[in-house]
Write a protein that binds this DNA or RNA. Sequence first.
DNA 1: GTCTATATTGTGATAGAC
DNA 2: GTCTATCACAATATAGAC
Lengths: 206, 206
Amino acid sequence: MVNTTVSHIHSTEQKVLEAAKKVFIQNGMEGTSMQQIADEAGINKSLLHYYFRSKDKLFDAVFGYAIQHVFPRLEGIMNSDEHIFVKIERLVGEYMKMLMENKFIPAFVLHELNRNPDRIFQNFKNSGINPGIFVAQFVEEIKKGNIRRTDPRQLIINILSLCIFPIAARPLIQRVFFENNDMTYDHFLEERKRVVADFIIQSIKN
Amino acid sequence: MVNTTVSHIHSTEQKVLEAAKKVFIQNGMEGTSMQQIADEAGINKSLLHYYFRSKDKLFDAVFGYAIQHVFPRLEGIMNSDEHIFVKIERLVGEYMKMLMENKFIPAFVLHELNRNPDRIFQNFKNSGINPGIFVAQFVEEIKKGNIRRTDPRQLIINILSLCIFPIAARPLIQRVFFENNDMTYDHFLEERKRVVADFIIQSIKN
DNA sequence: GTCTATATTGTGATAGAC
DNA sequence: GTCTATCACAATATAGAC
């Protein structure tokens, strides 16, 4: 859909978008002013309106980007011919990696989701993310007797929960349990990739 | 600490606080105006400042209340003399019940946590919530050989993740998987109490 | 305690010069 | 394309009448 092949070209429009991503995702729609974005981009306020008519439209552009990171397209891993348990391990690892690299996105999406559900649902549908692929593949494995009969929705929610929450609540967890040390918590999350994968696999094993 | 015994008396101050809770928790600090709160309380804007000097102070009062619902005090259940597995089942059930009754609080707290971590951490410390009690009890059970050797931090994060995320992401999950039907999703969450408890117990069983 | 009126600053957005 | 200047309005907060 969107042309990402030229995203490295730092045209003014790109500078605006990058600045908007940074500020919106950290502070939310209402917590962000056009002035902040302009400052971050090192340009004038009016230029924001020149490229993206309104704050709303600029926000939508940012949100479309963010939602891809919270509900990523998993086709690549899911459609490989590896064993289901290997897939889950890779899936959890890749997903947590992505979230760790975009640590403000989970709480941002959850917040905007609660403030404006319909807008966000629309955005989700437009993103091309399709849980049906995962569900179908999962049901197939159940039929083959490879895994225990389980509600795929519970499974999906479990995976998302275990991966997303530790990032969304990071600022508090890190302070409570890890003396607010970034490296220590990063290391803990690295270990956690295996913990979560094992946890999930154990729960669907026959 | 806080006198909650008179919270049913609908003095103007209480009306203000109730209105502020409702509006702040749904829309966040920056997404809320003093006018909205005044309208919700059915009074004048100036009265908000009369009772709570500033928007900041009013927000702190609301946040102190909210954080108790996301990181509740579990002493009651933890200090009973029931079996550890029964405790976990009760704990998960009670916790999810509380979250379901306060469905906007999780995303609210996570958002504010990321916007202003230090302020929120301070608020957390003042709340009297103490994860040490749970950890100590858990370590004791490991020593007694009742459960598998596990990092208690991973366990706590697992429990919080599995309980909080389905509420925080409810507006999207409900639309994607449950045709946006409140009753259907409530029913799913009721079932989920057992799913989560079993999931947790299975993961620490020897 | 509760109101009206107002001060002050910040907001999104547009017009128009260059 | 990029800037300055400005509009119309909303924000938090305070002063003062009752």
